[in-house]
Design a binder for these strands. Structure first.
Lengths: 109, 109
DNA sequence: ACTACCCATCAACGAAATTTGATCATAGGT
DNA sequence: ACCTATGATCAAATTTCGTTGATGGGTAGT
């Protein structure tokens, strides 16, 4: 749960933690194109169901994804706002001398 | 060490892991303005010396910082290239429908 | 009712990360 | 030579993570 008094740094650390695992990054990669049900994820990632469920919960608690139930399926999807927040954090970490360099190098979005 | 065959995802996971700790984020925050010696960091962060040393090593092994010895001090500094890489990763994670939104919203660098 | 499928949750285990205190190495000052 | 400050490293204790297998709750089809 995200408390109101959570510091910026704590929020950033939580975001980074959620993304610090290869399996979870693969999930995010799959969700980039739109929502998927868990069964699709387990199929494509060759991962045990309970393992996937664990990682999906981590991503969900970090606010990076949401889930939606329909019939017997659960669909997970990226929360675009959270990804925008990640981008903000990665920008705010840039050294002061480097910010406008990124734009010059055409490395920006 | 970064091996040649390391996948993009593994690299991203390693980066995120290094930044998934509040203490390490505080260090990065302090280094944003330029290099600092370890003693300055321990002073400002109220952290035990060996603890700081540990976190600095993690950041260094992730390629996010470098160190330089001068006299009896060690100075640590951000590796701008690595931060640019972080930015790249955060952009590449954006859902396909969101990429140009960021630019529109003026949230880009 | 019975069966098959989808998925969350739990307990248990091992592995990895983090903290703490102690020790060691080096550089400088007196 | 001696003493002190800076930092790296090590071992031990602790905490946090990730995986696995089992269980249970829903939902749909027959």
């Amino acid at each position: 749960m995200t408390t109101a008094v959570e510091s910026k740094l704590a929020r950033a650390a939580a975001l980074f933690h959620a993304l610090s695992d290869e399996t979870r990054l693969e999930i995010m990669e799959m969700l980039r194109g739109g929502e998927r049900c868990v069964c699709e994820l387990t199929d494509e990632l060759e991962a045990a169901q309970s393992r996937l469920s664990f990682h999906l919960r981590v991503l969900k608690e970090a606010g990076l994804v949401t889930d939606r139930k329909e019939g017997r399926w659960s669909y997970y999807a990226i929360v675009p706002e959270a990804l925008a927040g990640l981008h903000d954090v990665s920008v705010s970490l840039q050294p002061t001398t480097q910010r406008r360099e990124l734009r010059k190098m055409g490395r920006c979005c």
